[in-house]
Design a protein around this nucleic acid. Sequence first.
DNA 1: TCCTAAATTGGAAAAATTACTATTTGGAGG
DNA 2: CCTCCAAATAGTAATTTTTCCAATTTAGGA
Lengths: 148, 148
Amino acid sequence: MRVSRDKLTKRMEEFRAALKRAGLKITPQRLAVFARLAEEDSHPGARAIHGKLKKKMPGLSLDTVYRTLWLFVDLGIVENMGEIDGVRFDANTEPHHHFICRKCGASFDIYCRDFDDLKLPGELSEIGEAMKAMVEVRGICRKCLSRK
Amino acid sequence: MRVSRDKLTKRMEEFRAALKRAGLKITPQRLAVFARLAEEDSHPGARAIHGKLKKKMPGLSLDTVYRTLWLFVDLGIVENMGEIDGVRFDANTEPHHHFICRKCGASFDIYCRDFDDLKLPGELSEIGEAMKAMVEVRGICRKCLSRK
DNA sequence: TCCTAAATTGGAAAAATTACTATTTGGAGG
DNA sequence: CCTCCAAATAGTAATTTTTCCAATTTAGGA
């Protein structure tokens, strides 16, 4: 799905501001990667972004895309979805939720009754058939906080 | 953290029942992988599981671990965390939530006011410092439903 | 315009995951 | 308890994803 024009403009402004604030250069590559990410809400991976941009920007290296994306995550203007180091597995079949550390990727179970039976919005049926809902809390874990 | 003895027993029962129901063999490898996963709530990845089990079961192949874990996901006794095909990125800075398709891995944004300001449980502070909470809904997307 | 630290490229390396074949084995049926 | 065979595994090769690095280019301040 496409993002509206003014949302896009707003995001591009935030992007420029964040780079300026951090004293980083505004390069064509960074502009292209961010724009690509900001104008769609399909949450692409690095390869997908690289593939799309390669047409307009043949020299673009895959490494740059990766480096750029993680830079954006560090700057707080982009969020990563999914674990840092590959897929993980969970055999806990009871209702529970997750805390995930942004620094080290560690994850912890959270038990919270209020979260167990969230009422899902009706429009969800347009997207698909929901089977389960859980809350994902992101932050910094104790260990990472202390060794900071 | 360790899981209590009766929870573990219960999970092992469910595991045996699920394999039986599907007409699959209960092998030492499957028992070991599931037990390893069920007795901890640290959500390990395939490599971590393989590494731990290698000591007791020197011949265990990494392929078996991967195959076994995805089998468990298919059977519904294990849930995978993180995207199927690598890390993804999201430049949407507005409060929103995600629907993720179990079949194809596609993800969609959900907007739902009720989810935007979930009250986090106090015990969370023992785990770390929370920065953001979002709801992750899992199910089957329209496309996958229709092509079923 | 010039200069320099920062950024990018392209290719190589590392890590994660899947594929494949020969061999082994769980467990159904005798 | 044997026997047997479809199912499962081991070991290794292939593929995919991600990161690293040295050489080169460039954004943007002076």
